[in-house]
Amino acid sequence: MMNAEWGTRSGAAMAPVSFSGRYRHFWSVLVTTARGFVARSNAYLIDVIRWPVFPLVFYAAMRLTYSVSGQQTVAGLDVAAFLLVGMFAFITWSGTIWSSGYAIEYERSEGTIAALFLSPASRVATIAGYGLGGFVWMAPSFVTVAILGVATGARFNVADPLAVLGAILALLVGSLATGFALAGIFILSRRANLLANFLQRPGELLSGALFPRESLPAPLHALSNCLPVSHALDALRASTLGAATLRDTLPTIALALAVAAVYAVVGALSLRKVEYAAKHSGDLDLY
């Protein structure tokens, strides 16, 4: 992706000759952004505590909801295990929205967006850096929910570790692609916070994190197919709870990656639109 200066083709003097190689530079931006995001996210004790607490308590609330309704199994799986794996998708979805999805908005609200756009740093590396930081940031949430899940009776049934690995990879790639698409859309909407808060619930409803997607009404089921996280979660549940092999889950993983590719294209287009809007209005803050 081109930087603002490169996009103007204003001269070879702006060529990044003083920087490391292209891939090394990309990697450097990615890691530095991720490190910065994790450091900022953990700057206050209350933030360190509250992010893992939310999915943990929400898991407990959903587990109790199933419990009072008298259901011990969901879609042929134990409720605790079904919800535990679903919470992984729930956490990933939240992390996606508030890390890579919110990447450019963070830069805007902190007043660094102009510097970012004018620097030779790749926008893709920056957003991916936020996404990577988001996975690290959410790691305590994954661990605490897993502990509570196992403590409340969740048991895994894995036949092929490669299938689990493939599903996790699909979840992470799908998450990054979604964040990439949201990053540009959020900033263009000028209502990033509102949109981010709004999108949380549909993700919970449509991804199948809390109940089987098959129970959704047809139109909502069709919508849920448009989320990479839905397919990745299907593959993750099958491989971790249903002893599915990589051969069994490969079509679902491929579907997750294909939908993720569409999101990546949307992300590229929306970022281009952001650049255009910034240059057109002459205001990088996009207010």
């Binding site: 909801t65 309704s69 008298g70 259901q71 509102l194 619930r201 549909p202 409803l205 809390l210 109940f211």
Partner: peptide
């Protein structure tokens, strides 16, 4: 945006509960 927040959010929440309770537990 205002109405999306205050109108849509409760619908999603109720949707989740309705799909969990289904018709088996109308009281709940």
């Amino acid at each position: 945006g205002y109405f999306a927040t205050w109108v849509a959010l409760p619908l999603f929440q109720i949707g989740i509960v309705a799909l969990i309770y289904g018709d088996n537990r109308r009281d709940l």
